[in-house]
């Protein structure tokens, strides 16, 4: 299935992906309204140092350890996408502890959130990918998933 991949060679560390992610998941039609004067809670994070940067979001693992560790049964995987049922989350942060990519984080309301490939919002395609100015984040099918 198609996944979000990051080519760190082309990542500029501009962090537009974080803002596009936060906007896409805000449910609002205006980025200014959604993000101005607010702390943002994106589901993708740019990491790195002065010499290299790259964006990290959920890898949608074949055998997701977050799913196994979730004490509330809030995390599930269907059609290759790891999803979280936020109504079941109890905020125990076990998933944060176990995820090797740091892909889960609490949202503004303290409930856990993660990348769901923009399938749950109005974007249609991952907003981090469409907004990346240098094709450093791509959404494509690769024969050898991680």
């Amino acid at each position: 299935m198609k996944r979000v991949y990051v080519n760190e060679e082309w990542c500029l560390g501009c962090r537009l992906c974080e803002y596009n992610c936060a906007f896409a998941n805000s449910g609002l039609g205006d980025m200014v309204l959604a993000l101005k004067d607010r702390k943002i809670f994106p589901r993708i994070h740019v990491e790195g140092n002065d010499s290299i940067t790259f964006a990290v979001s959920c890898r949608h693992c074949t055998d997701p350890i977050c799913q196994k560790s979730c004490i509330a049964g809030a995390i599930s995987k269907a059609d290759g996408v790891v999803r979280i049922d936020r109504s079941k989350c109890v905020g125990c942060l076990t998933c944060v502890l176990v995820c090797p990519y740091g892909a889960l984080s609490p949202g503004e309301d303290g409930i856990m959130q993660k990348c769901e490939l923009c399938l749950e919002n109005a974007c249609g395609a991952p907003a981090c990918v469409t907004g990346c100015p240098n094709k450093a984040i791509v959404y494509e099918e690769r024969s050898d998933p991680e």
Partner: peptide
Amino acid sequence: RDRCIACRVCERQ
């Protein structure tokens, strides 16, 4: 100022 969300993309670029 009404539009700027202080994302600092301009600064980084």
